[in-house]
């Protein structure tokens, strides 16, 4: 099986005929099993880039290949959307049916699958998303976290090897955020390729690759741990998790050794040991 999920080559995009590029010469390789954290502040171009992965937008310059298929070629559209599914920031914009299981079935029904296959996919998706007991419930009664998990269940039911999520936790409370992050982790463990757009650095610990966008350009790539040590975070519109920010200052002042990780238990140990 081909290992490449997406290959972006010098991809540029602009919403205007002339003028500012929303994306400017992006090169990025996404491989099967990756968890890409796509970071950047408001207006960095991360949502525009997200929409290229399933050909909602196509490059004006450069190219975007999904499993080797050129996204500018209309006859690839159907196959590309069977490869990559999208989850948006606001689940309300994505839920189409009034009953939970009907909503999950919407995608597979559009693929024209046999009824038994649809049933099997919906059951599996709802179980993975932790909504099995809500199958027959009205979707408007779900909490924010549950609604976002329903949107993700819709993507799971499409059985695509890759899911792109555009700030899926932005409108959720801490409980809802945790539910969604736990679900992403379990999907990744099952082999799904994850492209996760966020500006919350708390959410990138499981990422295999981190890329940072600023004003349409890809300005940095590396691992989560490498990112925490970068000085440019603020100018990228990103904010360190408070614990990491404090840890960095303590290390700078020499209060703790560089070898102590930014974790509560280890910090307490290190700080109280020599009292």
């Amino acid at each position: 099986m081909d290992i490449s999920i997406a290959s972006l080559q010098g991809l540029s995009y602009s919403y205007l005929e002339v003028g500012n590029l929303a994306l400017d010469g992006i090169d990025l390789e996404v491989q099967r099993g990756d968890w890409i954290a796509l970071l950047g502040g408001n207006g960095s171009g991360k949502s525009t880039l997200a929409k290229h992965f399933n050909a909602l937008l196509t490059p004006m310059q450069g190219a975007c290949f999904i499993c080797g298929m050129d996204s500018r070629d209309d006859k690839n559209l159907w196959e590309i959307r069977k490869t990559v599914s999208m989850v948006f920031q606001n689940p309300e914009n994505q839920i189409v049916s009034t009953v939970v299981e009907d909503d999950t079935a919407f995608g597979p029904e559009n693929l024209g699958l046999p009824t038994e296959e649809i049933r099997a996919r919906v059951d599996r998706a709802l179980k993975i998303a932790g909504l099995w007991d809500k199958a027959e419930v009205a979707s408007y009664t779900l909490s924010g976290g549950q609604k976002q998990r329903l949107a993700i269940a819709g993507a799971i039911a499409m059985d695509t090897p890759c899911i792109v999520l555009d700030e899926p936790t932005a409108m959720l409370d801490p409980q809802g955020r945790k539910e969604v992050m736990d679900l992403l982790k379990s999907l990744h463990d099952k082999g799904t390729t994850i492209i996760h757009i966020t500006h919350r650095l708390e959410e990138i610990e499981n990422a295999t690759k981190v890329v940072v966008l600023k004003k349409g350009k890809l300005v940095w790539r590396g691992t989560p741990k490498e990112l925490f040590l970068r000085q440019e975070l603020e100018s990228w519109g990103l904010e360190l998790p408070p614990m990491v920010a404090m840890w960095r200052e303590l290390a700078k002042m020499g209060t703790i050794g560089q070898d102590v990780p930014p974790e509560t238990e280890r910090l307490v140990q290190a700080l109280c040991q020599s009292l």
Binding site: P242, M246, T264, L267, V268, L271, C272, L275
Partner: peptide, 16 residues
């Protein structure tokens, strides 16, 4: 409880 507040509570438990 935010991570830093949690740390503060734990530090005081250990006498800091």
């Amino acid at each position: 409880l935010p991570s830093i507040a949690d740390l503060w509570v734990k530090l005081s438990k250990y006498g800091m």
